[in-house]
Structure formats: C-alpha cells, structure tokens
Write a protein that binds this DNA or RNA. Structure first.
Length: 371
DNA sequence: ATCCAGGGCT
DNA sequence: AGCCCTGGAT
C-alpha cells in the first residue's frame, strides 16, 4: 500500500475532483460561439421572447417547439398582450405542445411580471422563482440569458454533460445527486458570460453529448471527459426505472352532422379541460358499446344508438398507453350546442379550440375514412 | 410498435 | 414520490 494521505487533492478548494474549470471554460465557449444553432430566441434583445421560449422548452425539444413558438408570438407579440389574454386563448395557442399547465402558468407569470415588475422579467433569483411555472432551472436560464446573472442552469442536457464529464455514476433521479450537480455546475460556470455559458452547456448536451449517439470526436472536452476515458459515456447518466405502463381504453362517440363533429370538454385529470369526442376512459374494452351508450345518454340527455367501430388510434401519455376507439353514433334528437360544454365543430373550428394531440389524431383518422 | 427525452408542482 | 404530454429514434 502506498501512502496517499500526505498529498491533498490538487483542487482542494473545489468540491469535486477532475478537470479544472479554468481549462474547461474557454474550450466550451469557443466551441459554442463557433458551432451553436441559430434559434429564433437566441441573440434577441427581448426578455419576453426568452420567457416564452423557456416555458415552451420545459420538457420539450427544440424541433417540437419551433412551429408553436412562431405561431404563439404572432398571436401574443408582447408581455402585455399575453397578460391581457384569456386563459382559453392562451391554451388554444398552446394546443399540441403538451403539458398544458405550462400555458396557464406562462399567462399567470406574464400577469405577475406586468403588475409587480413593470412588465420586465425580473433579475433577482427569488423573484424569478416566485413566478408560476418557474423552478430552479428556468429561474437560472432566465436570469442568465436575459440579464447575464451568474446562475447555473441545470436541465437534463446539463446533467448528462456533467455526469459524463466527471464520471458521476449516482442516479440523477435522486434529489441528492441533483443538488450535487447544481453545485458542480455553479463552480464550473463562467460568471462573466453566464448566458452564453449556460446555453453552451445545454447546446453541447443537445447536439454533441447526445443520449444515444454521443459525438465524442467533435466534443471540445473529449480529452477531459472521465466517462469517455473509461468508455462508459453511453451508460450515463444513470436514472431510476420508469413506472410500469397502464393500459387505458378511451371509448369515444363519433357524432357527425354536415361535416361537423360533436366535441365536449374532457373531465378526466389527464388532458383535463381539452375539447375531445365525448366518451369515457375504461381499464379494459369489455362492454365498451353498452358503457358508451349509458354514458352518452346521461351526458347528452338524448336517445343514443351505438354503431360500428369507425377508427382506432393509439396515444401514449407518460406511462399511460391509451387506445382510442371511435364508434359511430346516432341520436334522437340531435344534441344542441351548450356553452363551454358541447360544440358542433367544423375542422376550422377545431383549430380555434383547446385540444390535445390525442383528439387531433382521432379526428384525422375519421376524416381520412370519410374522405 | 416501443422507448425515451425533457422541469415543475403537489 | 407521483403526476403531466408529444414526437423523434430505433
């Protein structure tokens, strides 16, 4: 056994062992300035645009966000227009993006920014975190990108970069690991260029330090990366096992009349409040027809006849695997529109309602059938 | 068809 | 710790 107690770690002032920030920083920043993607919210002098982009980018990848971002900005061009919009208007503009709570939070955040911060995204970390829908990550992203405040932003990309760079094999599902990674990110941060630094970390994670196909040969940190040296990059980050999936059968009634389809408001927790074809969620498809008939007669208050299955689509939400069964329905008499509950919607109307991708998929399947 | 990426709230 | 959505990769 060789004695090792006599030599303290070279980086004793830091909470981690491994590459030195002073070496790492210029490598990443140079790489970023040369290689980053041109995105519509990058390099703009608009706190509002950054705010909208950060909310959309929560749990959502750039490619998915892009088309929604442009539409949303056209619809709500500035902080005040968003603050003054109704919840319904904002949800509609958010349709298809998912995690609809974010749309409501964003509107509420805009209202708070207008009323408490003179319509400008605040600078102080606690003020940022006090905004609805803003947690540690988003507060740091907004503060650094808009105001160049030295807050380290740690999202999933950054956690992947850090666990690989330092060869951290603890599960990132543990809160304690996340705390450790945030501290690490804060020490690594280039405090003079926090906005570029955070975006560089995320850009590296998104484009080079990818989950399945890391492009180590073009990584500015290749020679410093512990996981790369050990050949375990693909094994990191470690995370907890996902929950088992639950089967859900959505039994929906297709009421068609002169090119219009009857939609009602969803009352189940999943996708709550979105407009959809009327029906019910079941654990199994047993007795679907009869259950649907009872449900619709109760819900619509008319006599209901359930016909043939018209279409079937699949949709997965988190750990729910949903099979949507659409049955042809005849009623007597025809149910009437009812404000905020029932609407006979043309395809054009559907675009102006708060819907989910599940419903759009089913409507598309039916439209294809009918030609 | 399945797997998996991606933050905040309660 | 459990819950929420969509789409791209495989």
């Amino acid at each position: 056994m060789s004695p090792r107690s006599s030599s303290p770690p070279a980086n004793a002032s830091r909470s981690f062992n491994g590459p030195d920030p002073l070496n790492l920083r210029p490598l990443l920043l140079t790489w970023y300035l040369k290689n980053h993607r041109q995105l519509p919210w990058r390099g703009v002098d608009s706190d509002y645009k950054v705010l909208v982009s950060e909310f959309m980018l929560q749990q959502t990848q750039v490619a998915t966000v892009l088309p929604h971002y442009e539409r949303f900005l056209t619809r709500f061009p500035n902080m005040v227009s968003l603050a003054q919009a109704t919840e319904e208007e904002v949800e509609t503009a958010w349709s298809g993006l998912g995690y609809y709570r974010r749309a409501r939070a964003l509107r509420n955040a805009a209202q708070q920014i207008v009323s408490d911060h003179e319509a400008e995204v605040p600078t102080d970390f606690e003020d940022l975190k006090a905004l609805p829908g803003v947690g540690d990550y988003t507060a740091a992203a907004l503060g650094s990108i808009i105001h160049d405040e030295p807050y380290a932003a740690v999202d999933g990309n950054v956690m992947r970069v850090l666990t690989r760079l330092f060869g951290i094999e603890d599960s990132i599902s543990n809160t304690s690991t996340q705390v450790k990674l945030r501290a690490l990110a804060q020490e690594l941060l280039e405090p003079e260029q926090a906005g570029d630094w955070n975006q560089a970390m995320m850009e590296l994670g998104a484009t080079v330090c990818a989950p399945k196909k890391p492009l180590c040969s073009v990584c500015p940190w290749e020679e410093h990366c512990v996981a790369h040296a050990k050949g375990i990059a693909l094994d990191l980050p470690k995370k907890a096992k996902p929950k088992a999936t639950v089967e859900v059968h959505r039994i929906a009634g297709v009421l068609l009349e002169e090119g219009r389809c009857l939609l009602t408001r969803r009352t189940e927790k999943l996708l709550y409040g979105t407009w959809e074809l009327p029906g019910l969620d079941l654990d199994s498809p047993e007795g679907a027809r009869e259950r649907l008939r009872e449900h619709l007669e109760h819900k619509l208050g008319v006599e209901v006849m359930v016909g043939n299955p018209l279409a079937r689509v699949r949709h997965s939400i988190t750990h729910h695997r949903i099979q949507v069964h659409g049955y042809a329905i005849k009623t007597n008499p025809k149910p009437r529109n009812k404000k905020n509950e029932r609407i006979w919607a043309s395809p054009g109307d559907v675009a102006n309602l708060h819907t989910s991708s599940m419903t759009i998929k089913l409507l598309n399947a039916i439209a294809k059938l009918k030609g």
